[in-house]
């Protein structure tokens, strides 16, 4: 019997110590039946891409509240592509100014979430994106 599970890496890049949001999301995804790999704080984009590869995840969720998203997120996307993981869906959450959202989406991020996002929304979006990706 094939038993497929959605695998998601939840990462906190940079020196940002705000980890409540990442943990809330990790737990919500687990409660939705996903397998969540949590790597802890202070990850470099290289560490995130390496973990995404070794764990063969379907999605990467990046939580940033420090303001460094415009540097860190595109770097992660580049590394994922360089590793042949362009099919991995990338989600970003935290404190992301409205103005930065379009360029993140342009760079390849699937969706950006701010404070107060209901976790049910995140679960729904990730599930849909991963299933869609599996069909291409």
């Amino acid at each position: 019997m094939i038993e497929r599970k959605i695998r998601v890496l939840i990462a906190k890049p940079g020196l940002d110590g705000h980890d409540r949001g990442a943990k809330v999301i990790a737990r919500a995804l687990r409660d939705a039946g996903m397998e969540v790999i949590y790597t802890g704080l202070r990850q470099t984009p290289e560490m995130i891409a390496e973990a995404a590869l070794q764990e063969d995840v379907d999605a990467v969720g990046i939580s940033i509240l420090s303001g460094a998203h415009m540097v860190l997120v595109p770097r992660v996307l580049d590394l994922l592509r360089a590793n042949g993981q362009e099919g991995v869906c990338v989600f970003v959450g935290g404190i992301i100014p409205e103005n930065d959202v379009p360029s993140l989406i342009n760079a390849g991020v699937a969706q950006v979430y701010g404070p107060g996002t209901p976790t049910t929304q995140v679960v729904e979006d990730i599930t849909r994106a991963v299933l869609q990706q599996a069909q291409v």
Binding site: K5, A26, R27, L29, R30, D31, A32, G33, M34, E35, V36, I37, Y38, T39, G40, R42, Q43, M47, A51
Partner: peptide
């Protein structure tokens, strides 16, 4: 729930 949080990597940075 059938889900899991896999956290061992935190100690292997």
């Amino acid at each position: 729930t059938g889900g899991a949080v896999l956290g061992d990597r935190v100690r292997m940075r």
